[in-house]
Amino acid sequence: MTGLRPIQAVVFDAAGTLIRTREPVGATYGRMARAYGAEVPASRLDEAFGRIFAAAPPNVHPGETLADSAELERRWWRARVRETFRAADGMAAFSDFDAFFDRLWDHYACAEAWELMPGAREALDELVERRLMLAVLSNFDQRLRPLLRQLGIHHLFEAVTLPSDAGAAKPARQIFDVCLKRLGIANHRCVYVGDRAEEDLASSRTAGLHPIDVRQLATLAELPALVEALEKELA
Rank of each mutant, 00 (worst) to 15 (best):
A93Q: 15
I52C: 04
G152F: 05
G30E: 05
Q150L: 01
S43E: 15
W114P: 01
M1N: 13
R51M: 06
Q216D: 14
D102V: 02
S95G: 15
T84Q: 01
V214I: 15
V40E: 03
F85E: 03
I153R: 02
E198F: 09
A9Y: 09
D213G: 07
I212L: 15
L226Y: 07
F85I: 07
E71Y: 10
D102W: 10
R78I: 04
D165E: 02
P224L: 12
F85G: 02
T17D: 04
E23L: 11
E233P: 09
F94P: 02
A56S: 13
G50M: 02
A87R: 10
I153M: 04
R103Y: 08
G167L: 08
E23P: 00
L18K: 04
P57H: 09
A79D: 13
D200M: 02
Y29Q: 07
Y108C: 03
L45H: 02
L223Y: 08
A202T: 09
E158V: 10
H188D: 14
S204L: 00
F157G: 07
G16R: 03
A92I: 10
A172E: 15
V10S: 11
F53Y: 12
D98L: 08
P224E: 06
D98I: 06
L134Y: 10
F157P: 09
A111E: 10
E233Q: 13
D200W: 03
D68Y: 10
L66T: 11
V81A: 05
L127M: 15
Y29I: 02
R80G: 00
L180A: 12
A14Q: 04
A197T: 15
L134E: 10
V10A: 06
A35E: 11
R130N: 14
I175E: 05
D141H: 11
S69M: 01
T21M: 09
W77C: 04
K181E: 15
I153L: 07
R121I: 02
A135N: 06
Q174H: 13
D125I: 00
P118T: 06
A202L: 10
R75K: 12
G194E: 07
A186G: 14
V40H: 09
A221Q: 04
N187Q: 12
R196H: 12
T161W: 08
A93R: 15
R173I: 08
A172T: 03
R44G: 13
V227P: 01
V227I: 09
F97H: 10
G37V: 11
D89E: 07
R22H: 02
V193L: 05
S95Y: 14
S138K: 06
F53T: 00
A166R: 03
R130H: 14
V136I: 11
L147E: 05
K232Q: 15
W105L: 06
R78F: 07
A88I: 04
F49G: 00
P118S: 03
I212S: 01
R80P: 06
N59P: 00
L183C: 03
E47G: 01
L127H: 01
D213Q: 10
R215H: 11
A56F: 03
V160K: 05
V178K: 08
T219N: 03
E112T: 11
Q142P: 08
D195P: 06
G90K: 08
I212G: 01
R143M: 13
D200T: 03
F101T: 11
N139A: 05
G63L: 12
